[in-house]
């Protein structure tokens, strides 16, 4: 399984993508969304193509999103591809394997983000990203003996993942590139938080305001709470949540929706 993205005037478009787009954009082919799918055999030959959303409507971006229409469409198309390839029935689902640490990293922070916009169910599915952490990067999070103030910018590498799954929310109108989350402001409290057995704990909490490279007055904020568990000399185990409000702009105006982040440390 893989994905590819680009525009028709890009250089180096893979032959399989060209084949998909020749069919998609031929005169009279109809609209559909900007997402298509193709299945290739082990030699790279395209054996089936289909639009990601069934039954294109009356123009670009249209499709049947009702009920299980999309799920059933994929099941039908993938089953047809399997038949063409002589693969038979699908086996048991694989176990969940989340995005791994970047090569060479021994540890990091996994960030799950979701936006609860009832009009965009896809945003409810968590985005999952991993931020590598060096041993030295943990120095800023050594357990304090008493409550201290921590600038939220120290957590920007993790908090920079706290934006909705659909990057169309905030993209540069010229380059179409997504804006980066570049600012995390707020005075956080970093304090000892008790002990249990051999573990000692600390808590980081406070309100964080996030901004992006798009500039202007756009921002979103939320409450961050992070527990760090220290045991021996190893980097702490981290578990935290970010609960905020994201002002989503759409053709119907701006509305605010809950945005939720979950943070957890990962080790190789």
């Amino acid at each position: 399984m893989a994905s590819w993205h680009g525009h028709r005037d890009d250089e180096g478009i893979p032959e399989a993508v060209q084949e998909v787009w020749r069919a998609k954009f031929r005169p009279g082919a109809g609209g559909g969304t900007n997402v298509d799918v193709c299945v290739l055999d082990d030699g790279g030959k395209v054996v089936r193509t289909f639009g990601a959303i069934p039954a294109p409507g009356r123009g670009p971006g249209k499709g049947d999103f009702r009920g299980d229409a999309v799920v059933n469409h994929w099941k039908t198309e993938v089953a047809a591809a399997r038949e063409t390839l002589g693969l038979g029935e699908a086996g048991e689902p694989r176990v969940v394997a989340l995005p791994a640490l970047p090569e060479g990293a021994d540890g990091g922070i996994r960030v799950f983000t979701r936006l609860d916009d009832p009009g965009m169910p896809a945003y409810n599915a968590p985005v999952v990203e991993v931020v590598a952490m060096t041993e030295a990067a943990w120095d800023a999070f050594a357990r304090p003996e008493k409550a201290v103030t921590l600038d939220a910018s120290a957590l920007l590498p993790w908090l920079s993942k706290m934006f909705p799954g659909g990057v169309m929310e905030r993209t540069d109108p010229e380059t179409k590139r997504v804006y980066d989350v570049t600012g995390a402001e707020g005075d956080l409290t970093f304090e000892p938080a008790g002990a249990k057995g051999e573990s000692r704990f600390a808590l980081i909490r406070g309100v964080v305001t996030l901004t992006d490279s798009g500039g202007g007055t756009f921002s979103w904020k939320g409450e961050l709470r992070v527990v760090l568990e220290y045991r021996g000399e190893a980097p702490p185990v981290l578990r935290g949540v970010f609960e905020g409000i994201y002002p989503r702009k759409s053709p119907n105006g701006e509305r605010e929706f809950p945005i939720t982040g979950v943070l957890e440390s990962v080790r190789r």
Binding site: S3, W4, H7, W21, N34, V35, V37, A81, L85, V178
Partner: peptide, 11 residues
Amino acid sequence: PVLLVVIHAKY
């Protein structure tokens, strides 16, 4: 085989 998702977009 490969299942490829093709997105007509910059990102």
